[in-house]
């Protein structure tokens, strides 16, 4: 069923646009990305670069004014964009691709106990659920066999223990507000891992947390996904967080990927001018952060060619005309730039 190579997800030339008052905003404009099995892929970029839209496109939960135009999202060899909607709902989203949201405060239903929300996830998305179980009204009334219900509930409690919720069985009877932000994010991680997914999409899961809690959560998430061989798409605007947890990093700028590299290579040899300037803008002891200058371009009428060229010190005529093709800096380090930083300029 799965492709022979170890790429779990292949995003190819994906374009998503939104109809807005000012025209069509090309939020994703030819994005390419691969995620291997068991890998944590960091998706880094500033607000408006399209990282959340990409995450939502993979989950199939784009807002109603979004239009898929072209491209493909191959997950385990099958194109999610061409898969029947019903199959995505039933077998992919929430089951094989799950989600950890940014804000653990707004993402639980405040009126239901944690246990009931966990059981709801397991009822519909547990790996024990038969593939062709009923849907709609029929599904609503169909049997949830006692044996499966018990096994699912036991799994859920076990998962709460795994994410180090104190007194996990009592936690089932509590309401979301009784937990702190850090604990709620632990619960979110538990819910995301309960269906035993292949891919977890984590959308800035630690931005709402304090730094010591962030360190705890990153440590936990990294350990759990590595133990289970789950792949993660980890979106963040914080390069420090990306350094902590990711195996590879993809940088996005204005709806396109610009650089993709293994984490150590990425921080040792950043090659795209945007990446370099981004790293220079971080506050570091002993030096002033350097600003990038200019503003992030609008997506209704983005610059032609390389979208970074109006802000780039290295830009030449070719940069205005055509988006650079993917070139390799080294084995696994890909780049879209005509004038890579720190490299000899190819003729």
């Amino acid at each position: 069923m799965l492709a022979p190579d170890d790429n779990l997800l292949e995003v190819e030339n994906l374009r998503v646009s939104f109809g807005t008052e000012r025209g069509v905003a090309k939020v994703l404009d030819g994005v390419n990305l691969t995620i291997r099995r068991g890998e944590i892929m960091g998706l880094v970029g500033e607000s408006g670069c399209g990282k959340t839209t990409l995450a939502r496109a993979i989950l199939g939960i784009l807002p109603a004014n979004a239009r898929h135009e072209t491209g493909s999202l191959r997950f385990g060899g099958e194109d999610l964009l061409r898969m029947p909607r019903r199959r995505v709902d039933d077998q992919i989203r929430g089951r094989r691709i799950t989600f950890i949201p940014q804000d653990p405060f707004a993402s639980f239903n405040p009126l239901f106990r944690i246990g009931s929300q966990a059981r709801e996830v397991m009822k519909w998305k547990s790996p024990r659920r038969p593939e062709h179980a009923g849907r709609g009204l029929f599904g609503f009334f169909s049997r949830y066999p006692r044996a499966r219900r018990k096994a699912d509930a036991a799994d859920a409690v076990e998962m709460m223990r795994t994410v180090q919720i104190p007194r996990a069985d009592e936690a089932f009877d509590k309401l979301p507000h009784e937990f702190s932000g850090g604990q709620r994010q632990r619960l979110m991680i538990a819910l995301a891992l309960m269906p035993q997914p292949d891919l977890v999409i984590a959308d800035e899961p630690t931005t709402a947390l304090d730094v010591t809690i962030q360190a705890q959560i990153l440590k936990l998430l990294k350990r759990l996904v590595k133990e289970r061989g789950v792949s993660v798409l980890f979106t963040t605007h914080d390069l420090g967080t990306a350094y902590e947890i990711c195996d590879r990093i993809t940088v996005m700028y204005a709806g396109q990927e610009v650089e993709m590299a293994p984490v150590d290579d990425f921080f040792q040899r950043p090659s795209h001018p945007y990446t370099v300037r981004l790293l220079e803008s971080l506050p570091k002891p002993g030096r002033e952060p350097r600003e990038i200058g200019g503003e992030i371009p609008g997506l209704v009428d983005p610059p032609a060619g390389c979208r970074f060229h109006p802000r780039c010190a290295h830009a030449t005529d070719i940069c205005h005309m055509k988006r650079p093709a993917t070139t390799s800096v080294s084995a696994a380090h890909d780049l879209r730039c005509y004038h890579p930083v720190g490299a000899t300029v190819p003729a």
């Binding site: 010591t212 809690i213 420090g240 040792q268 790293l279």
Partner: peptide, 22 residues
């Protein structure tokens, strides 16, 4: 608190951080 700050290029906090609890 200082041990929890990611240090790009240095040791990973996810390997070294020990503070428990909230």
């Amino acid at each position: 608190l200082l041990a929890a700050i990611p240090d790009i290029g240095g040791r990973r906090v996810t390997d070294t951080f020990t503070l428990e609890g909230e």
